[in-house]
């Protein structure tokens, strides 16, 4: 099976869906002639032209809202936000319009649109350019929120997102764009709302999504050396959330560490930890642990910014807590 990057996987997904459906368009800052700020859309402008791959001015509210209007009227736009940090300029359009039009029109409107771009901490970018904002979107009914962590999932989920009739917030990661993985040449879709067991195990469940998957995998490898068999549940879809997959794993292992690179207050991580505590209470041998980012804005200094985020040592420490080791 070919090995490609996460970036290429996303590009292939958009390319295939644009070839399949003439109503799919891509718009955002620098997506066309510049080939994408992170080169995700490289080559698409040459292939599909300025009518379908559209450079916008730096006006997130305006072009996001216009894409929502176009989706309501019948197109299937993909909006690229250069980063999710800038999506806050457009969040009114997403929360008040995209997520609400169907409901407040009594079901008359559907909004098939994808909002995608890099989310979460990168490196040396400081507070405004390095934050994980999934909780903002996952909080809101009416949105689908996806967070793939491998090239395979990125491609399959993006294709599903483009075909979905709902507004989909699709979280990528600057640090993940160069990650590599096996992606089949033949067409496939990854279903929305299904978690994936990235590593089966019997001793402890690590519930994770997006970039911290790698830290969880590193932690699991380290734990295996100590004879601890961790199961990694990659959520992939934050809304809808695959609660069954989470509970099945925790009921098997009896111990749970939730990992989320967002801040801990009112986050996906804290929500999942509460769900597990409530719904797996009788199966748990220890209180659920949450490994989140520190509750601080991101500093510029590299040593400090690494200290903010979830890491393999922090996950291992949490696993030891739920196993009452040391």
């Amino acid at each position: 099976m070919p090995i490609i990057t996460y970036r290429e996987a996303l590009r292939h997904a958009m390319d295939e869906e644009m070839a399949r459906d003439g109503k799919v368009i891509l718009l955002g800052e620098e997506v066309a002639q510049y080939q994408g700020a992170y080169k995700v859309s490289q080559g698409l402008w040459e292939k599909y032209g300025s009518k379908r791959v559209i450079d916008t001015p730096i006006t997130e509210e305006g072009f996001t809202g216009a894409a929502i209007g176009a989706a309501m009227a019948g197109l299937r736009p993909i909006v690229e936000w250069m980063t999710f940090n800038f999506s806050l300029q457009a969040i009114d359009q997403v929360i008040n319009n995209a997520a609400k039009y169907r409901y407040m029109s009594g079901g008359q409107i559907k909004t098939p649109i994808v909002f995608r771009g890099p989310n979460g901490p990168a490196e040396y970018l400081a507070s405004q350019h390095s934050q994980a904002l999934q909780s903002f979107y996952a909080h809101c009914p009416g949105l689908v929120v996806l967070a793939p962590a491998t090239p395979y999932d990125a491609k399959g989920l993006l294709k599903s997102a483009i075909r979905d009739d709902n507004p989909v917030v699709f979280l990528e990661g600057e640090m993940m764009y160069a990650w590599k993985g096996e992606v089949p040449e033949e067409e496939y879709l990854v279903p929305i709302g299904k978690a994936d067991i990235k590593r089966p195990g019997k001793d402890v469940s690590l519930i994770v999504h997006s970039k911290p998957l790698k830290a969880a995998q590193d932690a699991a490898a380290e734990l295996a050396k100590a004879g601890i068999d961790a199961e990694i549940v990659d959520l992939r879809s934050l809304r809808p959330l695959d609660e069954k997959a989470i509970y099945d794993s925790v009921k098997k292992t009896g111990r749970c560490v939730v990992i989320d690179e967002s801040w801990p207050v009112a986050s996906i991580g804290s929500w999942v930890a509460w769900l597990v505590s409530k719904n797996c209470f009788d199966y748990l041998d220890a209180p659920v642990e949450l490994v989140s980012s520190e509750d601080v804005p991101m500093p510029y200094n590299h040593r400090l910014e690494l200290a903010v985020q979830p890491s393999a040592p922090k996950i291992i420490e949490a696993v030891k807590k739920v196993m009452y080791l040391g």
Partner: peptide, 18 residues
Amino acid sequence: IVGAHIPIATGIALKIKY
């Protein structure tokens, strides 16, 4: 939301043009 529908209208026009 005051003004929030103005981009929406713009997008419906984008669909007509497209």
